[in-house]
Design a protein around this nucleic acid. Structure first.
Lengths: 168, 168
DNA sequence: CTTGGAATGTCAACAAAGCTGACGTATTGT
DNA sequence: ACAATACGTCAGCTTTGTTGACATTCCAAG
């Protein structure tokens, strides 16, 4: 099993050897560090962390989303998210309005100030992503997305696809 | 700028629109969660966390590595790593031996017990990676790795390439 | 209509794992 | 001899995750 790929005759399965797979694992590790490095640097100067970035990103992504919805997407506990949301609301970056249909729900929106922070953070991250895309080329990007999509949990793929297909 | 790609005439740059890039960002986020989910589940049952996994992985990867070397690869502070290393050594998963050439250095190795844990953790992660690879196919995997490599910081790419080119 | 359970969100207290800064020891090399 | 390096450790802080208790709101069964 440890040499599964190498015992295959064709080259088509060579990318499934333990060694190849391990390289992929380390590539994920190192790349994710680069992926978060730029926004992290910016957040450090302000009083926020990576969790704030995630919240702001997905509120920007799906304006009017509820706390529960965000909870499912982010995969954290209520309090973790709540602490972050509380500071964002207190600082006037996010607005929380009681639901009209269901008053238990709170609908979340970015304020102008929140949208400005979102742009600042995402621009840094997008720039790196964009330059990586440019270097690797369109076909590599397609493969990149295919593999990532196959790596997600079922539920998360659902969120991802649902978001991907949005047209508004 | 927000519609940069769409204002380009050719299709060759269409994958660089903000929307496309944002999809890539979310793909990274969701995929990384899947990527760490399986080992995290195992670690939860034992008394360890993700930090222990990383240490064990890279010690397995580069047996005899020094503390300093590990520090550079993992990108954390001495104290953070030391806390993890201390428990791993106390629990008999990692051995630390004084350097022969330079007695200031400590060379780290996995014990049999440590190697067993490494296998258990990595098997889960490798399985997911392998199945993602299989689903996406060799060309997608090549693209996947290209983009990830382009996304790393310079220093990390160095570590990655150095590791990639090892032949022992 | 009432009432009890389910769903949504808030708060308090705590744990894991990162960080900075300071300090001590052994070893190396100039 | 002395400065620099490699490692370990103490104290204290921040971010971000957890569990458990609680208030409010909705809905459906009696």
């Amino acid at each position: 099993m440890s040499q599964g790929g190498q015992s295959q005759s064709g080259q088509s399965l060579l990318f499934l050897t333990d060694e190849q797979v391990r390289k992929g694992i380390e590539a994920m590790f190192f790349a994710y560090r680069g992926f978060t490095a730029d926004p992290d640097r910016i957040l450090q100067t302000k009083a926020y962390g990576r969790a704030h970035h995630r919240a702001v990103h997905f509120i920007h992504r799906s304006p009017g989303t509820t706390v529960n919805n965000l909870l499912n997407i982010l995969g954290v506990t209520k309090q973790s998210l709540n602490r972050v949301l509380r500071t964002l609301i207190a600082d006037g970056l996010v607005s929380s309005t009681v639901g009209r249909a269901d008053k238990r729900e709170r609908h979340l929106h970015l304020t102008d100030v929140g949208a400005a922070l979102e742009r600042e953070l995402s621009d840094a991250q997008r720039d790196r992503m964009r330059s990586a895309y440019r270097r690797a080329g369109p076909e590599a990007v397609a493969g990149f997305r295919e593999v990532l999509e196959a790596m997600m949990d079922e539920d998360m793929r659902h969120h991802y696809v649902a978001i991907k297909d949005r047209t508004d």
